[in-house]
């Protein structure tokens, strides 16, 4: 099956992909495709600005619902600036760690509590 293209610009409605809630629209579209084993190309054509908050919900959340193997096999990113790819890479690494081991966050809380005592 050839990949379908998801236009981030079109889903958000402008080139500033900033708010977390806007990321949800992208996440929902990708999720629908992955549930049907459909491969997707996420196009960032005409996207000017991105925040980590947007990418956390748009793409980071995928690691909660799908395996890394499935995401790697079915999702591809196109038309993204190198600097934005660096940000997305970081979002993905963070999401992988977060969903693999949620207790990690509790450890960081214990650490700061220890420092605080």
């Amino acid at each position: 099956m050839s990949p379908i293209t998801i236009s981030v610009f079109n889903l958000v409605g402008n080139g500033f992909c900033v708010e977390a809630k806007d990321g949800d629209a992208v996440f929902n579209s990708i999720s629908k495709a992955l549930q049907q084993e459909q491969s997707v190309e996420i196009s960032f054509h005409n996207v000017e600005m991105l925040t980590s908050a947007f990418l956390n919900t748009a793409i980071g959340q995928l690691y909660r619902d799908f395996t890394e193997e499935k995401i790697r096999k079915l999702v591809n990113v196109v038309d993204m600036a190198d600097t934005d790819i660096a940000l997305l890479r970081r979002v993905i690494e963070t999401a992988k760690l977060y969903y693999k081991d949620p207790s990690w966050l509790e450890e960081s809380v214990k650490l700061i509590m220890g420092e605080d005592e």
Binding site: N56, G60, Q61, V91, Y98, L105, S108, I112, D116
Partner: peptide
């Protein structure tokens, strides 16, 4: 925790108070 410690915790990479969504890198 104190306000100072809460800020110091929040600026560390990957620390987030969000529930169910990864983050903490901004």
């Amino acid at each position: 925790i104190s306000s100072v410690e809460a800020i110091r915790w929040a600026v560390k990479d990957r620390n987030t108070t969000k529930i169910g969504v990864s983050g903490g890198i901004g």
